[in-house]
Design a protein around this nucleic acid. Sequence first.
DNA 1: TCGCGGAAGGGTCCTACCTT
DNA 2: AAGGTAGGACCCTTCCGCGA
Length: 369
Amino acid sequence: MSRSRKAQRVAPIPSADLEQLRCRVRALAENRPAVYRMTDAAGRIIYVGKAKRLRTRLLTYFRAEYPDDKAARILYAATDIAWDYVPSEFAAYLGELRQIRRHRPHFNYRGNVTRRSVLIKMSGGPAPRIYAGGTVSRDDLRCYGPFQSLGRTLEAVRTLNDLLGIRDCRATMPIVFAGQGDLFDEPRQAGCLRHEFGFCSGPCAGFVTEREYRLRVDTAAAFLEGRTIQPMDRVVAAMQEAAEAGRYELATRWREKFEQLEWLLAATSRARSAVDLLTFVYRDPGTYGEDQAYVVVQGVVRASAPYPATPIEREAFKGVVAGEAERPKPAAGPLPMDAIDEILLLMAWFRAHPDALGRTTPLEEWAAA
DNA sequence: TCGCGGAAGGGTCCTACCTT
DNA sequence: AAGGTAGGACCCTTCCGCGA
């Protein structure tokens, strides 16, 4: 793909003396992995980025054209660039993620786009929705996954919602539960046809009590957490009933629903195992020889230190690992909301670098050494 | 030999548009 | 309405020619 070079437009005056900034980068930035930050005149961090080769990366900012290139737009808003060298590309990924999470910089609105995954999310609010998607929003209370196939996940979630009568309308749909006193005596009409077909319990039109709807959502959560297979039992019963009545076409449709739920049950179980498997000590080779040790527990980096070289360092690090190994494991449930980004990052890293798995050691092995 | 600048490549996401 | 797809945008990384 070729990127068109558009005609130079009149640019506003940048916040900083770009030539001076460029000279400083030239003079100081080395071609090593790093996490860099751009700050504005008020000292706010407006962008956090990572680079495998910092010098090369930063110099590209000064060649970008304003306003077409985002790099130039960031640079024009910035008054300073600061950076921390890190031992490796992995450390740069992790450092970038954590700094973005901490500072929420304006120009990082798209976050880090290197990860692709599908999650099943449960929204908050009086009538939660369950839906699939790639990003976590502010309104989401729980998350499950990650899953590989968006299409399959969407299909399975729809079946689960249909079976349990969970709404799949827009988030802003006004909710009126049964038993909530209102001024209207006339029967209400549900906002969509799913209620007519028996696929939605109708929390938009007072057809279900808040408690009853909550029970349905709790059942869905229990299914996604592997604590119940109740929705599948209902499908099996319906399938048998249809078959006994000689309605084979209907039985086939129930069979498809069964297979979707079966897949979802297996996929959530696989996803939980995949997160659990990301529990080890990872020895990350430094670009210039200084290896780093990361204590990873269920996809989250809990501690890191230069890879211990002396017996004293080993003993100290062993203590850290033992401390993590002894921590009680959280019960199987949704993904920890504050760590989803990091779990996805680690999954993507070890998927893209299978050789890195060869440099991992179980926590117990370290603790027992 | 090294650093620089320019350009292309790679992988991913978003959006508009088209088809079913 | 849902699903598929093409094109564009984004964020780097890599390659290549050139000059000091």
